[in-house]
Design a protein around this nucleic acid. Sequence first.
DNA 1: CCTCGAGTTGCGAAC
DNA 2: TGTTCGCAACTCGAG
Length: 529
Amino acid sequence: MTKRSIHWFRKGLRLHDNPALLAACENAVDVKPIFILDPWFASNARVGVNRWRFLLQTLQNLDQSLKKYNSRLHVVRGTPGEVFPELFKQWETTHLTFELDIEPYAKVRDAAVKSLAEKSGVEVMTFVSHTLYDTDKVIKANGGNPPLTYQRLQTVLSKMGAPPKPVEGPREIKTKIAANHDTEYGVPTMADLGKDDAECGPLLFPGGETEGLKRLDTMMKKTNWVCKFEKPKTEPNTLAPSTTVLSPYLKFGCVSARTFYHEVQKVYSQNKNHTQPPTSLLGQLFWREFYYVIASVSPNFDKMEGNPICTQVDWDDNTEYLNAWREGKTGYPFIDAIMVQLKTEGWIHHLARHAVACFLTRGDLWCHWEEGMNVFEEWLLDADWCLNAGNWMWLSASAFFHQYFRVYSPIVFGKKTDKDGNYIRKYLPQLKNFPTQYIYEPWTAPLKVQEKAGCIIGKDYPKRVVEHDKVREKNIKRMAEAYKKRKESSSKGITEKRKTEGSEDGTPKKKRKTGGNNSKITDFVKKSK
DNA sequence: CCTCGAGTTGCGAAC
DNA sequence: TGTTCGCAACTCGAG
């Protein structure tokens, strides 16, 4: 039998440690590496311009790397449901390979494609390579439920032993390339997708496997830094990132988590001492695993309602506050600077995420964590469905983390690691000439000082939207109330749950409106025909 | 050499 | 992966 394969790239946009690609290549006379520009993502996932750019650069890089094998990346437009039957016929496909994906949309999509392939007599082979471990096996090892604490996850993982070693890259990829490849299957430009390159921020983190592996290599060479890494001791407001910024590359699978894991282990093994999870560098990969394992089986993981692990809180629907936060106009320079960095550069430090997420939700503005999650999803280069939802639940004290009285101060927290406010001056140039004494609390500066600095508060930079000290106190009480309710309903809920067989009160409240972001989809869909 | 006050550090408690 | 406060213990230079 002659084997003709399609390898379907979705995440896992790499040639190294890609078992599904290897399987496609093995004994095949023709391998078609494809990426489907699925319009679902344009209309349902929030993808800002910076991440579009990152993705297209990643696809370009993949195409370049495949060229070295005399192969090419085939970018196909359309929904998987439309695309595959045609491709199977056209390429006389016998095998389809792809990496397992546990996100809800991916599960449904992949199940549909699987049955489609079977109807066409195409054999489907899937592999786990996005996470360190097979999430199903982790759950099985924990007795059928996902571990809901980090400690528990660690215990389970240590029983399971080290994650699989990364597999070798392919030796050869035999691809018959069509004469019209570039016009039919070329990687699109931003303009092709109706995106404006000029809206992108500075190119600090170029997309692609090559860039990702280069970054990994650079980081691993700092052996002392790797061994001493403690996340809470890294700083949120340095002018150059204080952590690896490998997250965008892990999100798209430009860098394999397992490769990262074993490279860190290699550095550890050559040194006497190293830090331990959860704060160590390896510990960060376990956090990723933690959220993936839980998200893989949790219903409504990215929502509050209908989400059994999420505390139900009476968040306000306050558009004014939400917009102020989103646009970096809360009047708290530390918060606003972070939001500007996020919007323009697509990456902010983990602790900066803590500060702004706490501020938006339980700390100050009492806005719904889902709103914050949506903004992060749009602007972060590393926006990862599991991690984003999980971290927003953590920060809003809705799940995993419960010490809701620990509230970050939008004034004090940043000062600890940037006394002079250089980070604020960089991202909020209107405050550049403010005296250090007032830079974190510009509303306290006398008018004369504001005039001298060329920045009047309330005119050139907004007044603070809330008084932190006051709302903090109020919000802690509201949080205590939500926890009290949860406790009450969980004690009687066990018996009532059987009866109603649904969510707490049975009837879901008004539907949350979804953010805009629909303007360019029509062209996108048209193009896909 | 002692005493005093100002300033610093460290800790536990409360929110 | 919090912040603030009070309090005790300590440092240090001035008188």
